[in-house]
Design a protein around this nucleic acid. Sequence first.
DNA 1: GCCAACGTTGGC
DNA 2: GCCAACGTTGGC
Length: 139
Amino acid sequence: MAYWLIKSEPDAWSWEQQVARGAKGEPWSGVRNFQARANMNAMKKGERAFFYHSNIGKEIVGIVEIIREAYQDPSDETGKWTCVDVKAVEPFKTPAPLADIKLDPKLKDMVLAKNSRLSVQPVSVEEWKYLCKLGGVKP
DNA sequence: GCCAACGTTGGC
DNA sequence: GCCAACGTTGGC
């Protein structure tokens, strides 16, 4: 069981929109980065990911679940890129801001803090549990 | 809105 | 296969 973190600019696709999709979920399409694609391809159905708002908010706002494993991105004409489907599971009672993550000794080594440009990242089990506690949700 | 950091592209 | 140039991302 692996854990992940996916980023979106709320202008383009927000947590609120994700929640509004309900159990149907939404394709996480438009990723055009090799590292991010490799991470998506490694995702298994039922695994979970943090939902992070970049640019506006800059905080982890909730948890999503992978409901469909990697398949060809419908928004890609070349056929090279893949996407997964995710559905909202639970919002953070207290969003976890990037500024706090960078200051926290337990979290400062997160990919999010070190390579903020990678849009799909792995999260360690320790980081996952700790952030769930900060967010006020069950791991 | 600016700029640093990173990833990708293309010429050699 | 290297590396300079370019484009994009995202924090500030």
